[in-house]
């Protein structure tokens, strides 16, 4: 395998050269278009050190009183949004599986792709005027986007499952309800639940930024502390966010491993 990879590499040399030229041209174009310069890059480490230096020690009292509640709100948004996404995506994802429902699949998949193409924060911009500022708008945004991603991944899992149980159930006279209940769900559900957990980890990060457009959670707090250059307070936001996200990743990752292994 390795020998083949090496051989292919040598054969593709001229192609590689072209790609190199294209990348260099794109880089040059991007450099010229932006406010990036050598002198700014040289000054960067000192600027970062100055700011991050002021983050420490973080303001513990502010962390306790203002940061922790906002982070908890972000977690609530992520949890409930993931739940909404999971509940709605299960039937949609099954219907979008090409091996079970070919016609429905062709109709649903483009819709899911369209939902996925809009980032959560853009969805939140539309939900805020309808339901008002706050966590509920963020939850709806996370929920809707999760439907798009989870239904697609659910369909992928179903499409790559073992088809033999399906044949067995229908051969012994089972209708499509029995096929779903006895042949499809038992084999795909653990993997799908693992996907939900993984989506929850992603949604924690996504919900953390929704506060930027007023949709609740910790993002608005960070934006405000930085706007007023309240760096010890911003330090509390950053440190607590890192700790909480690491903890959630660890718990959720362990659960996922158990689910997929069993």
């Amino acid at each position: 395998m390795t020998a083949r990879a090496l051989g292919r590499r040598r054969g593709a040399m001229s192609g590689t050269a072209w790609i190199g030229i294209a990348v260099a041209a794109l880089a040059a174009w991007s450099f010229s278009g932006l406010d990036v310069s050598g002198s700014r890059l040289v000054a960067l480490p000192a600027m970062l050190a100055r700011m991050f230096g002021q983050f420490f020690p973080p303001d513990v009292e502010y962390g306790r009183a203002s940061v922790v509640p906002a982070i908890l709100e972000s977690i609530q948004i992520a949890w409930f949004g993931t739940l909404v996404g999971a509940v709605l995506s299960l039937p949609l994802g099954l219907a979008a599986a090409g091996n079970l429902f070919p016609r429905a699949s062709r109709a649903i998949k483009p819709v899911l792709a369209a939902i996925r193409a809009v980032p959560e924060i853009l969805l939140a911009i539309y939900f805020v005027p309808v339901v008002g500022l706050g966590a509920f708008a963020g939850t709806l945004a996370i929920g809707l986007h999760s439907v798009g991603t989870l239904a697609k991944l659910t369909a992928d899992v179903v499409e790559s499952m073992d088809e033999r149980p399906v044949e067995a159930v229908s051969a012994s006279g089972g209708g499509s309800a029995s096929v779903l209940r006895f042949a499809v769900l038992p084999q795909v559900l653990p993997e799908i639940v693992a996907l939900w957990l993984f989506r929850f980890e992603i949604n924690v990060r996504a919900s953390a930024v929704l506060g930027v457009v007023g949709a609740g959670g910790i993002g608005g707090v960070l934006l405000n502390t930085l706007r007023y250059r309240a760096f010890p307070e911003a330090g509390a936001v950053v440190v607590l966010t890192v700790v909480v996200v690491l903890a959630i990743d660890a718990v959720s990752g362990a659960l996922r491993e158990r689910l997929v292994r069993e």
Binding site: R205, V209, L222, V238, T241, V242, L246
Partner: peptide, 9 residues
């Protein structure tokens, strides 16, 4: 752990 927009801020 940090979302892209946090880095941006």
């Amino acid at each position: 752990t940090m979302p892209d927009l946090f880095w941006a801020m």
